[in-house]
Simulated scan of single mutants.
Amino acid sequence: MTTVNNTTGSTTGSAASATAAALGSTMSQADFLKLLTTQLQTQDPTNPLDNSQFVSQLAQFSQLASTQDLNTSVNNLASQITSALQTSQVLGSAGLVGRQVLVPADSIGYAGSAVGGAASVVDAGDVRVVIKDGTGKTVRTLDLGVQQPGLAQFSWDGKDDDGNPVAAGTYSMSASAGDGGSALSTYLAGTVSGVGYGGSDVGTYVQVAGVGGVPLSAIAQIN
């Protein structure tokens, strides 16, 4: 003989509603339909789900579907806005092509002509820029004198401390200020040859001669 639990029909509906409420926004339409189907299959035939409870759950399903559709629409709109802003930024930056900018760098590519750069001065003091070759030997020390806070610009003519021309190549540079020789950030001057978008991690970038691709936000100065 089979015994039927008469309380199943009354508790199944409330349990399903409680489960749906607990899952909230993480519940998909497929999950909701699976839950509702299981509920209908397991309800007590002698005490079926109350009509009002069934209608209430259908209303929950409709609300869930509407919310997910709204989320999809909002996400699509946000993606379109982001894409439009990216395009606008790239197009707006196109005016930098051909302009000279100062961008972060710790090396100088010397190819026979004078190279410009700058040191970021935090506190006023005597500023020195040291240029070294690939072996770490100091080639040239540029004494910029006492500089006020800001960007202290300099130019290297490609000669060593004895006035002799150096070979073309890549040289490292560093800057310091004050008696303690506190390190300063250095920048290299270069001409912008192009503008592009490097994805969400990079964003809009500029192609700078002698440096390469540099994020738009890294430009310290436009000359």
Rank of each mutant, 00 (worst) to 15 (best):
L35H: 00
L85W: 09
G190H: 06
D106C: 01
L102P: 01
A218D: 15
T8M: 15
P215E: 13
V121Q: 00
L58N: 13
L85N: 14
A22F: 10
A59Q: 09
Q207P: 00
S73E: 11
K137Y: 13
G116K: 15
L151E: 04
T11Y: 11
V122H: 07
M1V: 06
A168S: 12
V146N: 02
V208A: 10
T38C: 02
G190N: 05
A20M: 12
N164R: 15
A209V: 11
P149M: 12
L70H: 06
Q53W: 09
A16G: 00
L40E: 13
T7Y: 12
P48E: 12
G13C: 09
D50V: 15
S174M: 11
N5S: 13
M173F: 15
S93N: 13
L35Y: 06
I81L: 11
T186D: 07
D106M: 05
T8Y: 14
I219M: 05
L85P: 02
S79R: 09
L102N: 06
V121N: 04
A218T: 05
L96Y: 04
A30G: 05
S88K: 10
K132A: 10
S25Q: 14
L64M: 14
S66F: 09
A119K: 01
T46Q: 14
T170C: 07
T11R: 15
L64H: 11
Y205T: 08
A189D: 04
G24C: 00
F54D: 05
Q29W: 03
G180Y: 06
A177G: 07
T2S: 14
S185R: 07
V214N: 05
G203V: 01
Q43P: 02
A30L: 14
Q53H: 11
T37D: 14
D133G: 06
V74Y: 08
L142A: 01
L91C: 07
P149L: 09
N76T: 07
S107F: 07
G198Q: 00
G136T: 03
L151N: 02
